[in-house]
């Protein structure tokens, strides 16, 4: 049987098309990004080779580390929110009435494009006419916060729409994973008198541990390179209070015409993602034993 499952020709046949595609369309850009990072280039006309200058500047750049910190916070926040999504998915995947209908509703925000979500949340956060502050004023708060305009709050306020936007994404995957858990195992546990919480903790979660791990990686890496709503809602402001790595990269490369430096930021982002993924793998593979 080993022979069938290790047929080199079949492996090549199955892997090669996708591999070629990502090597061409993702890895060449990655290498070029690193290469442009070695240049003094405004994106127009001649490049000048400056060695590692951009990378050295990057390591010393306070704004870069500040935006990295913001991205990491977003990653942490997204990871914590996974717990909530997991609980919701457990409820939806258990056989309660209306679960099917609720699940469909819960995923609707995911269908909206960032343009729409950005507009919606701009209206929610508006200091005067916005929904939150109108409610706060009704409840007697005289001086409600100005949300995205307050450099102390802006970043954290932004976390909510971002995390909310991806709720559907995680719920649908957790849900599909939970539906994959063999029914017989659950029935058997029920006969043994296990409560639903015990079943969830002892049977369901260990069985979908692999999926959970992938979701943690996706949540963190996705957060580290996150761009859309931050760009739409605050553009990284005020005063870089909500700047993340990708918005910083965009503003350097496309707004300030420092394409060389912007590329160095992009490459730095990639390296930080790799390090984080490696860390998560280490952390979670030791945890998995516990299950």
């Amino acid at each position: 049987m080993k022979n069938v499952m290790s047929n080199k020709f079949v492996i090549t046949l199955y892997v090669l098309p996708a591999l070629i595609l990502i090597l061409l369309l993702i890895y060449i850009p990655i290498v070029l990004t690193g290469y442009y990072g070695l240049m003094d280039w405004n994106g127009i006309g001649k490049m000048k080779f400056i060695g590692l200058d951009n990378y050295i500047e990057l390591v010393k750049d306070k704004l870069f580390w500040q935006s990295t910190w913001h991205s990491l916070l977003l990653g942490l926040f997204s990871t914590v929110s996974l717990v909530g999504y997991l609980i919701l998915s457990l409820i939806l995947a258990s056989k309660i009435k209306g679960a099917n209908f609720l699940r469909k509703i819960y995923l609707i925000p995911m269908l909206l494009s960032s343009v729409a979500i950005g507009q919606l949340w701009a209206k929610i956060f508006d200091p005067t006419n916005g929904m939150i502050n109108r409610l706060l004023i009704i409840f007697g708060v005289d001086n409600p916060p100005v949300w995205l305009a307050d450099s102390k709050i802006a970043l954290y306020a932004l976390f909510f729409p971002i995390v909310w936007q991806y709720a559907g994404f995680y719920i649908i995957i957790f849900y599909a994973a939970l539906k994959n858990v063999p029914e017989e195992l659950i029935e058997a546990a029920k006969i043994d008198g296990a409560t639903s919480i015990q079943i969830a903790y002892k049977i369901k979660l260990p069985l979908i541990a692999g999926v959970i791990k992938v979701m943690v990686i996706l949540a963190i890496v996705g957060s580290l390179k996150y761009f859309d709503l931050i760009f739409v809602l605050t553009g990284g402001g005020p005063n870089h209070a909500s700047e993340v790595m990708a918005s910083y990269m965009y503003s350097e490369a496309f707004s300030k015409y420092n394409f060389g430096y912007g590329s160095a930021i992009g490459f730095g982002l990639l390296i930080i993602c790799l390090v984080m993924t490696w860390l998560i793998q280490k952390l979670l593979s030791s945890k998995e034993v516990e299950f």
């Binding site: 701009a122 508006d126 200091p127 100005v146 995205l148 307050d150």
Partner: peptide, 12 residues
């Protein structure tokens, strides 16, 4: 100026 101006776009 309008409150929270630094989070308002020109359209807002």
């Amino acid at each position: 100026f309008v409150k929270g101006a630094s989070a308002l776009s020109n359209d807002d």
